[in-house]
Design a protein around this nucleic acid. Structure first.
Length: 302
DNA sequence: CCCGGATCCTGCTGGC
DNA sequence: TGCCAGCAGGATCCGG
């Protein structure tokens, strides 16, 4: 479920509530949630007794840096993960609660219905560029678990030219490239469709058919769309996505493509269509978002 | 290299 | 009312 704007909204909420608090205990309710750990007891060993100094994020990865800890406490929310903050110890756990982090005053609950999410204790590795690793951290240290993903469009240290150059070397469909966290991270199915609608690019266009200018525009559009979504608290369709305080976001009403099959394009009123691309539902305007080849063909017509 | 498909899960919706 | 297929915001692996 959660893409960059939702994870960032959650991160902001956590920052407000848990910075400086001390971890007293990590309770694992679901073995599956710690499947990445060879030894689940590491969570307790690595973090209990330590204070939360940073709540950081890159793309859809979120992590806590704790004073003196050898590793970072990493959370990936998968399709349905939630992080809920309680300022007092919860007396009853929500269904699908997988992990509880008990704090000195309150708790953080990791709740995950579809169980694709996980928590981990991951060593911090230096970023290749020596710059801060993501949003919410001053450290140039990234959890090893997240070191394979690129910076995200809202990261001030994103090297746009380098990203564009890499994208221009693949013939994969631009939507697939946007979803590939190794080029640029944080974009999921909703924001990929929204970005391409705003940028007027057909999702199936090969990335190497787009000019560097177009690719740059696509990435900047992704940043604009996701920035606007963060300001509205993310996209909530139902209770599956809520922020750390249990509240919904309001970006769903701003969606122009995602989930609007058959509805009128906000630019040209043409009914939007749905296609499957890269195994994912893809929503687009068949008139505004023409493929590059077709654009050239039309442009060269009589 | 590139693509499509399957896979890991649970739960909801819509059609019959 | 019940059942079942299909679908869901992620990520990864495999075969062709």
């Amino acid at each position: 479920m959660p893409e960059l704007p939702e994870v960032e909204t959650i991160r902001l909420g956590l920052e407000r509530h848990v910075l400086g608090k001390r971890v007293e205990e990590v309770v694992i309710h679901s073995a599956r949630a710690v499947r990445k750990l060879a030894d689940p007891a590491a969570l307790e060993d690595d973090f209990s007794g330590r204070r939360i100094e940073e709540v950081a994020r890159r793309g859809k990865f979120l992590w806590f840096a704790l004073g003196g800890a050898p590793t970072a406490f990493v959370v990936h929310l998968g399709m349905s993960g939630q992080l809920l903050v309680h300022d007092t110890a919860p007396r009853e756990l929500p269904r699908h609660t997988a992990v509880t982090v008990v704090l000195d005053g309150g708790a953080i609950l990791f709740v995950d219905q579809r169980t694709f999410g996980y928590v981990h204790s991951s060593p911090l590795v230096e970023t290749p560029d020596g710059l801060p690793a993501g949003t919410g951290t001053r450290l140039s240290a990234l959890p090893a678990l997240a070191s394979h993903i690129a910076r995200d469009p809202l990261d001030p240290h994103l090297d746009l030219d380098a990203v564009v150059a890499r994208m221009g070397r693949t013939s994969s469909a631009i939507k697939r490239v946007l979803l590939d966290q190794r080029y640029v991270s944080g974009i999921g199915n909703i924001y990929a469709d929204e970005t391409l609608w705003h940028a007027r690019v057909h999702p199936a266009t090969s990335a190497n058919q787009l000019s560097p200018e177009d690719l740059g525009r696509v990435v900047r559009t992704a940043a604009e769309v996701m920035g606007a979504a963060v300001r509205l608290g993310g996209t909530s369709f139902d209770a599956m996505y809520v922020n750390a305080e249990g509240q919904s976001g309001y970006f769903a009403r701003e969606l122009r493509a995602y989930g609007r099959t058959g509805g009128p394009c906000a630019r040209c009123s043409t009914p939007l269509i749905r296609q499957v691309l890269g195994g994912r539902s893809t929503h687009l305007c068949p008139r505004c978002q023409i493929s590059e080849q077709r654009a050239q063909w039309i442009g060269s017509g009589p």
